[in-house]
Design a protein around this nucleic acid. Sequence first.
DNA 1: CGTGATAAG
DNA 2: CTTAACACG
Lengths: 258, 258
Amino acid sequence: MRFYSWNVNGFRSVLKKGFMDWLEEADPDVLSLQEIRCEWEEVDLSIRHQLESAYDICWFPATSKKGYAGSATLSKKDLGFSHAKGLGIEGCDAEGRMIVSRKDGLAFIAGYFPNASQGLVRLPFKRQFARDLAGIVARHHAAGDLVILTGDMNVAPEEIDLARPKDNTKNPGFTPEEREDFKLYLGAGLADVLRERNPDVPGLYTWWTARGGARERNVGWRIDLFLASRPLLDRVRDARIHAEVLGSDHCPISLELA
Amino acid sequence: MRFYSWNVNGFRSVLKKGFMDWLEEADPDVLSLQEIRCEWEEVDLSIRHQLESAYDICWFPATSKKGYAGSATLSKKDLGFSHAKGLGIEGCDAEGRMIVSRKDGLAFIAGYFPNASQGLVRLPFKRQFARDLAGIVARHHAAGDLVILTGDMNVAPEEIDLARPKDNTKNPGFTPEEREDFKLYLGAGLADVLRERNPDVPGLYTWWTARGGARERNVGWRIDLFLASRPLLDRVRDARIHAEVLGSDHCPISLELA
DNA sequence: CGTGATAAG
DNA sequence: CTTAACACG
């Protein structure tokens, strides 16, 4: 089973840049999209029909602000995943951030984690989100579920996860607070799959600022991640960053489980 | 002497679409631009230098709202026109609408006449502008000046001046009030030069809505005009609409005087 | 620097 | 439909 996550920075934008070709090629079983930035009805009808023919689609745009944030999870129709919008976290759910998809004993929790924003004005919001989410993961584990947590987490966990760690300790995505909160997910029993398998490999990034050729020079950040319940690690066949896939300031990431 | 007027719908936009090539080809002696929608300092430095080497430039952006309206008048350096920003009309001058350029006994009054706007919300403002401007023209005549009044007047004077007169009698640009006010300019001693020379020619338009191929089908309006003091009519060598010139939703118009 | 909403035309 | 400002990332 192949899971993908991609912050598309506007679904309608990425559609113009070959998303459907990418989808056919990648052929994910389960796909989380972040920053869809539109309603389902704003997507071209023919595209909607194509997607609906192959996937169960949970489209979860923000209700708080038009064209802002939002996420979606698509799963192959034959798999029979159930999808639930939101985490019951105030504010977060109005921004269409997280979707919980379930099948058998697996909870696939995916979406668009808050950005701390310029001046770290949303750091308190983001910290509360992290505490709430870690609690939810812990409860799934207590209930005997296995968990995959993925999406644009808007935090680079360690210095190795961004090209310029020293320059960014006060910037959104690499503050001590955000890194500390990231550890709450690990404390709830999850592992950072890609980093577990590539402990010392630098230059593994999933996001590059659009300003000034950062992507060409691979001056980036690894902020899109797959975390998985530790018992799942034995079933990991592949965990990958698809940096060659263009169309957004983020690239897709994937996880293949046996 | 060749006068031109063009509503460029964003000077920076039209620069990307060959404005400088057009300028070299048309080679106006005096040029009024409307809807420049930027400060002079926002124009590429090399363009500014090219223009400044050939023209005396009066750049008159709106101060009331960034990126809105504004006009400019350029005159060949050797001609020695003087340029004055504004008409002393409250509101109008803050929007960078009108420039008065003088040489000998000629007053070239040019710019961006108000749009009555959706719901005709600015019709009162536009009517006051017309009364004030007609008074200014009359005073120039009383002082013995000849006047050229030009620009985007945002009114089609007669039914022949737009493709769909019946559909537009309640729309901005063709209300009875705006057409009545247009006659104030004629009453002040000006003549509509192109229409005087082509009394019954339909299809002479200077603006086409960007919506749905109107320009290709010539479903347009003649709202950019040269009006001239009647004694100037004998000196008119040419009056023309340059509908083939692209780059804006308006096309340039010209007047050549002996 | 790019996406999308918005105001204005 | 297009321009430009703006918010957000």
